[in-house]
């Protein structure tokens, strides 16, 4: 039987083990609100002003990958967590943990791209911290960020708001980031042209917010992929979500790598994608808004909230079969034969 005392890699996968660690240890000790009620950022109120507040740590390996690097990931990821609450990102912090011996040139390149990403998203990096640890005690560079944004009056985005009949929309192809990073990893000689989708989504969100109350839920399907994120929303809202496999936008390169390695793209990480749950009568309008935005050209309606339940997600397969969709369990591992 498993040794309960050990922290395993799977505890950081964003899937079931991560949820267990949060629910059993971290949240009861630190705050007390169940993970099922958690969103990408906390929304706190002060003097009548609602603020969204988030934090994240970045440990991606390798630190440079096609389509981005650990720095762009940190800035865009922080912006996105705020944007998913409907907030306008304002300020962020950057904490750097450097490994002794890291190249100063590489650090400079990463910092420059962070500045560029922050300027592009309209967020100001206003405070930070730098630590260096002995060689071997970290892997070149880890980054921790926090971010603050303002939630305008009338904006109510929450994972618990999905209702029967609502449509599920995604702003483009799935799995690009995870496959780009995997292919860039040493030891896996795959030549693909897949680039990470790493991007700040606050501009796209600002467009979607024009839909007002019809926009119920926003969430970015990062670790754990679309499957895990939709499962979280389904549980939070107490609904069944039915996906149509045929409608899932997927690049041929991602499809190919997933087939070779036995990965399910539904569980592969994205860094520039959002899932929007939208009232049925406004779904086509929301889709149009997405398609007109540069980060939403391949947007598609991929499913529907089909009933009330304790959080079921199911998939109508491309060949017309039906199957359940669970959260990511452990790490996604390649096949053995």
């Amino acid at each position: 039987m498993m040794d309960k005392d050990l922290i395993l890699l799977g505890h950081g996968s964003g899937g079931k083990l991560s949820h267990q660690l949060l629910d059993e240890l971290i949240i009861p000790t630190l705050s007390g609100v169940s993970v099922a009620g958690q969103n990408d950022a906390a929304v706190v109120e002060h003097n009548g002003q609602r603020l969204a507040f988030t934090t994240d740590s970045y440990v991606v390996d390798p630190i440079f990958f096609p389509g981005g690097n650990i720095g762009t990931l940190a800035v865009n990821g922080t912006v996105n967590d705020l944007a998913m609450m409907g907030a306008r990102p304002l300020f962020m912090s950057v904490g750097l943990i450097l490994e002794e011996g890291m190249s100063r040139r590489e650090l400079a390149a990463i910092l420059a791209s962070m500045r560029e990403a922050a300027d592009g998203a309209g967020i100001a990096i206003v405070t930070g911290d730098t630590k260096v640890v002995p060689r071997g005690k970290a892997d070149r560079l880890f980054i921790n960020t926090s971010g603050v944004g303002v939630v305008e009056n009338g904006v109510e985005i929450n994972g618990c708001k999905a209702r029967v009949g609502d449509r599920v929309i995604i702003n483009g192809t799935i799995g690009d980031h995870g496959i780009a990073v995997l292919a860039a990893r040493e030891g896996l000689e795959l030549s693909t042209d897949i680039e990470s989708d790493c991007a700040a989504l606050n501009g796209l969100v600002a467009e979607l917010l024009k839909e007002g109350d019809a926009l119920r839920v926003l969430r970015d399907p990062t670790r754990g992929g679309v499957a895990t994120t939709l499962k979280e929303i389904a549980i939070q809202s107490g609904v069944t979500v039915t996906l149509r496999e045929e409608s899932l936008p997927l690049k041929n390169g991602v499809k190919g790598v997933c087939s070779i390695l036995g990965l399910d793209p539904l569980y592969v990480a994205n860094e520039g994608k959002l899932l929007a749950i939208v009232a049925p009568e406004r779904a086509d309008a929301a889709l149009d808004r997405m398609c007109q935005h540069p980060l939403g050209r391949d947007a598609a309606i991929i499913g529907e909230v089909t009933g009330a339940s304790d959080g079921r997600v199911q998939l109508e397969t491309a060949v017309g079969g039906m199957r359940g969709v669970e959260m990511l369990a452990g790490e996604q591992l390649p096949r053995i034969c």
Binding site: G262, D264, L315, E316, T317, A318, V319, G320, G321, M322, R323
Partner: peptide
Amino acid sequence: MAIYQYGIRSL
């Protein structure tokens, strides 16, 4: 795995 993944039994 393929039979489950494609939902073959339901067909």
